[in-house]
Design a binder for these strands. Structure first.
Lengths: 255, 255
DNA sequence: GCAAAAGTGTTGGAAATACACCCATGT
DNA sequence: ACATGGGTGTATTTCCAACACTTTTGC
C-alpha cells in the first residue's frame, strides 16, 4: 500500500476544482489496486429561482459518464469529519460558508463507482441562488431544473432522488425553506417555494393563516419593490423564537 | 412481505463472531499505519420485552472501553454492499434473517475510534425477542433497557440516541412496530409498545379507534391465552393492504 | 381606469380528545 | 363473588378546507 497518495489533511484547501478532480482519479486508481474502500461526500445543492427548484451540477469528467451531469463531491480527507468535508466542498464550489447542510444517506453499492469501490455520503444543502451569482461561470457548473433531468453520472440520480424526497418531507416539519429565499421575503415567494418543492397548489388564505399563526414571521415594515402590481409586505423568519419553542414529541399515529 | 424490509439475499456466513472480532483489530492496525479510512456498519438492534424497549449490546473488547457496552458492528467487506454488511452482522449475532433493517446515519468524526480512522454507518433493526431466545447466551451479549443506560464504548451512545430518536419518529408514520411483536398480538400489546417507545400515555379507546379506522388489522379469530383476566382478541397486521394504500404526499406544514 | 396581485373572515366537516360503563375470564 | 383488564359510544373541541370580495399599486 502506498500511504503517500492518501489525501492531504491540511486546513482549507486552495486547490481549484479542476485540480481536485485530477487528484481524485489517481487516488481512486490506487485505492482500487489496493482493494480499499474509499469514502467520499456528495452534495446535492438546491436553489430556488424563477419559481422552480434547481440543483447545482457539473459535467462529469469520467470517460464512462461523458456529458452526463454529476453532483459536487470529493473524497473525504483523512483528518476531516464528514460534515467538514461537505462544508469544504460547498466552500470550494460556491464560495459560501453560511449554508444549510444536512446529511441524508450513505450509498455503498459495490459497483456504484466504475473506478474503485467508493462509499459516498449524500448531503443536502440549500442555498440562496441570488447570493452567489458570481462564482458559477467557471468549469461546467450549472443550475438545473430538478423536475426535467435525466442522464446523471454514477448513481447520482439515486442520490438526488433521495435528497429531493428528504427535502419534501423535511420542509413540512422544519423551517428549512427560508434558506432558499432572501432574508426578507414576501408571503407570495414563500408560498411559491412550497408549491414548487411539494408540487401542490395551496390556498393563499389558508397558507397565510398557517404561517401567521405559528408566530415566527416578523414584519420588516418594508415592501416589495419593482413589482408591476401592489407590493407585498416583506417578512423575516425569527429563528430565535423557533429555537425556544418547545417541540411536541407526539404527532399522532398515521400511516 | 413488508416492502420496507430490505430483502436479504446473501448466503449465510459461517464466520463466528469471535473470529470476526480478532480480525478487526489486526485490520484496524493496518489501516491506521497506512493512513486509510476504514468503513464499518453498526447495528442498533431493538427488541420489546416486559413492556420495555430493549437494545442488544455486547461487552466491548477494546482495552480503552473495558466493561463498556458496545453495539454490534463490523468492518464492511470489500465486495459487499452496506445493507448486506448490516444483514450479515444480524445473521451472525442473532441467527435471524427476516428482520426489519434500515440505515439511519453515518458517523465520521475523526477520532471516534481509538485504533484508526473509521467511518461507521448506523443501522436500526427491530426484532421480536421471543423468536431468537436461543442464540443469546454465547459471548457477552445482552438485552439492555434503553432508558437506563450509560457508559457505552466509542460514540455508540450517539448512535443509539440517533436510532432511538429515529425510531420514535418513524414508528408514528410507518408500521414498524409490528416487527417487535409476535405475528399475532393483542391491541393491549400494541398500545404498550407505542407507550413505551414514545414515553406517553394514550387513551385506550382512542387508540383502538385509530388503528381500526386504518383498516389494516386483521382479526385472527384467536384469543390471548394464559392471561389472568378476560383474554383479548389477537390481530395480525395486513402488510399487503398497507402497500396498496396510496400515500398522501401532503401532510401539512407544521413546525 | 384597468390589470394584477395583496390582503382579509366565515363556515361546515373531519378528526382528535375526553370521558364512564358493562362484559368476559381466571382465581 | 371479585379482581382484572377487554370492549364499546358519545359529546365536545380543535383543526383544516373551501370559498369571494375589497384594496393597493404600476402602467
Amino acid at each position: 500500500m502506498n500511504p503517500e497518495i492518501i489525501p492531504n489533511d491540511g486546513p482549507s484547501s486552495t486547490d481549484t476544482a479542476a485540480a481536485g478532480q485530477k487528484n481524485i482519479k489517481m487516488i481512486l486508481k490506487q485505492l482500487e489496486s489496493d482493494g480499499i474502500i474509499g469514502i467520499s461526500v456528495d452534495c446535492v445543492i438546491f436553489g430556488f429561482d424563477d419559481n422552480e427548484l434547481k440543483v447545482l451540477l457539473i459535467k462529469s469528467d469520467f470517460e464512462k459518464y461523458e456529458n452526463k451531469w454529476s453532483l459536487l463531491g470529493d473524497l473525504v480527507n483523512n483528518h476531516e469529519d464528514l460534515d467538514e468535508a461537505a462544508y469544504r466542498i460547498l466552500r470550494e464550489r460556491t464560495g459560501m460558508d453560511d449554508v444549510y447542510l444536512e446529511q441524508v444517506k450513505a450509498f455503498g453499492e459495490v459497483n456504484r463507482h466504475p473506478a474503485a469501490r467508493v462509499v459516498t455520503i449524500a448531503y443536502c444543502s440549500l442555498i440562496n441562488i441570488e447570493h452567489h451569482q458570481l462564482k458559477i461561470l467557471d468549469n461546467e457548473l450549472h443550475w438545473h431544473r430538478v423536475t426535467t433531468l435525466s442522464d446523471m453520472a454514477f448513481d447520482h440520480r439515486a442520490l438526488l432522488d433521495a435528497c429531493y424526497a428528504w427535502l419534501q418531507k423535511r420542509i413540512q416539519e422544519h423551517p428549512l425553506g427560508f434558506s432558499l429565499l432572501p432574508k426578507k421575503f414576501s408571503l407570495r415567494e414563500l408560498q411559491n417555494l412550497y408549491e414548487a418543492i411539494l408540487d401542490v397548489k395551496l390556498d393563499r388564505r389558508n397558507f397565510r393563516k398557517k404561517f401567521f399563526s405559528m408566530g415566527l414571521l416578523e414584519d420588516t415594515g418594508e415592501l416589495e419593490t419593482d413589482v408591476p402590481h401592489r407590493p407585498g409586505k416583506l417578512y423575516r423568519f425569527n429563528y430565535e423564537k423557533y429555537q425556544k419553542k418547545e417541540r411536541k414529541k407526539w404527532f399522532g399515529i398515521d400511516f
